[in-house]
Amino acid sequence: MQNDIVVEDVRKSYGKVQALKGVSLQAEAGKILGLLGPNGAGKTTLIRILTTLLKPDSGRATIAGIDVAKHPMRIRSLIGLAGQYPAVDEMLTGRENLVMVGQLYHFSRKASKERAQELLEQFSLTDAADRTVKTYSGGMRRRLDLAASIVARPAVLFLDEPTTGLDPRTRNDLWEFIRQLVDDGTTLLLTTQQLEEADNLADWITVIDHGEVIAAGTSETLKSQLGQDVLELQISNRSYIPQVQTLLESIGRETPHVDTATGRFSVVVPHGTQSLLEAVRVLDQQSIAIADIALRRPTLDEVFLSITSASEN
């Protein structure tokens, strides 16, 4: 399959801050690439480079084979962008915003108006279409911003945290809509901090942290890359928490996560059932009562926390 977005060893610094330290990734045409990373990882910086807003210090990025830094104008007619914060004109109405964007893509006024109407319907904004954006709620602005990003039916679409600030229902609608868009042939690069979102939407996930790619794969491969099972354990007497923590640390592969309010632990373990038995045995030796114990597959959240904390060290 052909790659629509190719990023090769891209670096970018803001003064002394190295935002990207040599990032490489690919997105297949017609697929969704989820770019996952904690605050400050460099997601927005990468999107800004790919959408011609920023020039990389070094490295190469191409979209549909066109070099982003060398032919920014060509790139701009191919892509759509909805940035991390909605960029719509408060003083114009929703409709006027979309018509203006259409015209700036050099569609005729008539075509821009028709497309605006279509998008307003698609994003359930018809009732508010002729009100100034100043009167819109946060979710309505975000929907309008997303609508603006696909006015030209771009071949490649960039969405920077598109569902931040949307209620669950609107978010689900948007997911549905995004899938539809990709079925129609759009290639999508989507950043998110919500693993659920990446898990749900992305065909391929690239995890970045501190400006570096630290893992990549489908959500399934990422989950199994972490490999081993997670041991979940609950104790009834919470005064034993520090003690249990030390014990689990020697059994598990990493520092156990503990919810001090409930006395619930979770820790990735190397040997599955054997590790479970070992946990039962050592806690029994110390006469610490176990309220509940189980083994399960890791969630993507745990994979994420585990690889991002590993890159910290």
């Binding site: 959408t51 011609t52 807003l53 962008l81 408060e90 964007v101 893509y105």
Partner: peptide
């Protein structure tokens, strides 16, 4: 500040516009 210039800069419009 409102990010509108970013939106404009991502569109294939004239740079002086």
């Amino acid at each position: 500040k409102k990010g509108l210039i970013d939106r404009f800069r991502s569109l294939p419009m004239a740079r002086s516009a």
